[in-house]
Simulated scan of single mutants.
Amino acid sequence: MDKTISILGGGSWGTALAVLLAKKGTHVDLWVRNKDKEIDINRTRENIKYLPGIVLPNNINITSDIEKTIYNKDIILLAIPTHGIRDTLKLIKDKLKRNQIIVNVAKGIEIESLKRISDVVSEIIPSSRYAILSGPSHAEEVAKDIPTAVVVASKSKEVAEYVQEFFMTPKFRVYTNPDVIGVELGGSLKNVIALGAGISDGLGYGDNTKAALMNRGIIEIARLGEKMGANEMTFAGLSGIGDLIVTCTSMHSRNRRAGIKIGEGYSMEEAVKSVGMVVEGIKTSKSAYKLAEQFNVEMPIIEEIYGVLYENKDVKNSVINLMLRDKTHEIEDIVENEISTW
């Protein structure tokens, strides 16, 4: 019997994954929020707003009926913004069957509760079989069959390997990882650093500045991740440094594009409006700032980005604040280990 999937969310990433699987021969139900969008995409066979220029294969069924789309599917994939996941889960929780797997591809942290998506899923659907698919993967490139590598994380090896096989193609390589916490945090927090990289670009700074932001940014992410129970090695992988590189350097990145506008002097609201799509790093910067406080973790880059977005700090002063922080060692563990001889 063929494996089946329902993708909840007709944005760029949900649509790209639908195209990927459809080309593999999988029948895909792609849920969108309103009837007009359903009619428009079914008529044109193109998601003009979010993924223009990509023809949707005929084995993708666009629907606005969420109950029908999740019925008897092997996988329910969450491709909606983080702030909408809780309400969507409440909508479908009584309609799911026990063995259905929930795969999340959203990259964010719930701003009110500071919960990761896996925590929200466990809270609302305790019996769920959960996995997160993450990594350096622009929707625009995946839909065009440009070779891409990602990672799927689950507490269950069986679930991780099932999802790996489901999505694997000659152009889409999937690795597995048991570290759900690390993969979720890496995918979420890199968006905040990408905002910073964009701000740096908007200010007219160069490669040196961006390299420093990316390098020190992943150290901050790993520092928080370890405190929250993640494996530090995960942040050296696809959902850590891999995703950070692609999001900080590409113009496909909504977070970088929004950051560029902020660096050029636009307000946060104007920057988001110019992008025209959800910029997850805006909300995640607030979540990251609060998590740093909660876990007593030093995260100066996150703190300054939060200050620019939510406290009207001057961007150039924030750069000076970072550059003139108290002198310190690059890697404290090395110094501690070598202290007797250095």
Rank of each mutant, 00 (worst) to 15 (best):
S6W: 00
L309N: 01
I60S: 01
W342E: 11
S188H: 03
N255Y: 03
L195S: 05
N337I: 13
K316W: 06
Y205S: 13
I245F: 15
I66C: 04
S122C: 04
K327S: 11
A18Q: 03
L91C: 13
L30G: 04
S318H: 02
I305S: 11
G259C: 09
D87H: 07
V121Y: 09
A236P: 00
R43M: 10
L89A: 02
S318K: 13
L56Q: 02
L203T: 06
A79I: 02
M1P: 08
H252K: 06
I146K: 11
G10C: 12
K23P: 00
G186H: 10
L30V: 12
E161Q: 13
G10D: 03
G225T: 07
G237I: 05
V297Y: 08
G196W: 00
H27R: 12
I54Q: 05
V279C: 09
D179Q: 09
A288E: 05
S122Q: 14
P57A: 11
S188A: 15
I54L: 05
K261C: 02
F295I: 04
A222P: 04
I124R: 07
T63W: 03
E332F: 09
L30A: 07
M233P: 00
N104K: 03
P147N: 12
E304T: 07
H83L: 08
A212N: 05
G225Q: 04
I80V: 15
R43Q: 13
P57G: 09
G14V: 07
I124C: 05
N191Y: 08
K68R: 11
K286G: 08
V279F: 04
L213H: 02
I39P: 00
L78Q: 06
Y306H: 15
I219T: 14
I245D: 01
D179T: 09
N104C: 15
V246L: 14
G263P: 10
M277Y: 10
A131H: 08
I199V: 15
V103L: 15
V105M: 13
K313T: 00
Q164A: 04
P147V: 10
G217Q: 06
D207Q: 10
K157T: 12
N321R: 12
V55P: 00
V151A: 06
Q294L: 14
K316R: 15
I302L: 10
I101N: 01
H329Y: 14
Q294T: 13
S188R: 05
I125A: 09
N191M: 08
T15I: 08
R173Q: 11
C248A: 14
Y266Q: 04
I102W: 10
E165K: 14
S274R: 11
G263V: 06
K190N: 01
K115A: 03
Y162V: 03
D314N: 15
